[in-house]
């Protein structure tokens, strides 16, 4: 039996993938270049600045570089002698087609018992959660699916579990929960925007904006000094 709920009226919901795709399209229309199918292999650096990045399509050079590679960020930075404490915490989700609106959630809930989130996304229902410390593997564990199905079917209906898409992704978690946004002290042109853990979608716009302000040399709207990698020293 449910006993109570904690309502947070200021929270919102939405599909991060659709958001990212549409924002990328709008950015491209404004002149941003996107190089896809281009694997990043490493960075070439002098003592105090990054000179270029090595990719599957050759070297790329710029005045400044931003690392926003989620869980893969520390792997790229390690050869430069930069230790970024980000470790992948694997999460899973199910996306169900909506079959009956009258049994489905209207907004988003967190099932505290299983730490599972159930969210209405247009004509779909997203059920996400669980945390696995298992390195960088992206295998889809059948046990985790069972937990997601259990939480959903105990609380709601109106979605077709048999037609669900099962997915996994690696959250880039820091040990202190806070993302790492800002400059890397030793390199004058290297910036980080990563380590957002479970909250990359929640924090994306604000993180992008304060990082842009910092690179531009403009004072961000909120304090940022304690968000940089320097807090770990």
């Amino acid at each position: 039996m449910l006993k109570a709920g904690l309502y947070l009226p200021g929270d919102q919901s939405g599909d991060a993938h659709i958001f990212t795709q549409r924002l990328a399209k709008m950015a491209a229309a404004k002149g941003v270049t996107f190089l896809y199918d281009t694997t990043i292999k490493g960075m070439d650096a002098a003592a105090d600045e990054v000179m270029s990045i090595r990719t599957s399509k050759g070297h790329l050079r710029a005045d400044a570089y931003v690392v926003s590679m989620g869980s893969y960020s520390p792997l790229l930075l390690r050869p430069l002698g930069v230790h970024l404490p980000v470790y992948p915490v694997k999460g899973y989700s199910l996306t169900l087609p909506l079959t009956d609106e009258s049994h489905a959630p209207l907004s988003t809930v967190n099932d505290e018992t299983y730490k599972v989130a159930i969210t209405r996304l247009g004509s779909r229902i997203r059920v996400g959660g669980t945390a696995e410390l298992t390195g960088y593997n992206l295998r889809l564990s059948p046990d985790r699916r069972e937990t997601l199905e259990l939480s959903f079917s105990e609380l709601f209906g109106g979605g077709d579990l048999s037609a669900a898409t099962y997915w996994t992704g690696l959250r880039p978690n820091t040990p202190d929960g806070t993302p790492v946004i800002g400059p890397v002290p030793r390199f004058s042109n290297l910036w980080l925007n990563t380590g957002h853990g479970t909250l990359g979608w929640t924090m994306a716009c604000g993180s992008g904006r304060i990082l842009a302000d910092m690179i531009h040399g403009r004072k961000p709207d909120i304090p940022v000094l304690d968000l940089s990698i320097s807090r770990y020293r």
């Binding site: 929270d11 919102q12 919901s13 939405g14 599909d15 991060a16 993938h17 990212t20 989620g70 869980s71 999460g91 989700s93 996306t95 988003t108 967190n110 989130a117 969210t119 996304l121 997203r126 059920v127 996400g128 959660g129 898409t165 997915w167 992704g169 690696l170 959250r171 880039p172 479970t198 990359g200 979608w201 929640t202």
Partner: peptide
């Protein structure tokens, strides 16, 4: 990772 998270802001 941005593909199919829980969808909560």
């Amino acid at each position: 990772t941005s593909f199919a998270n829980a969808g909560q802001v």
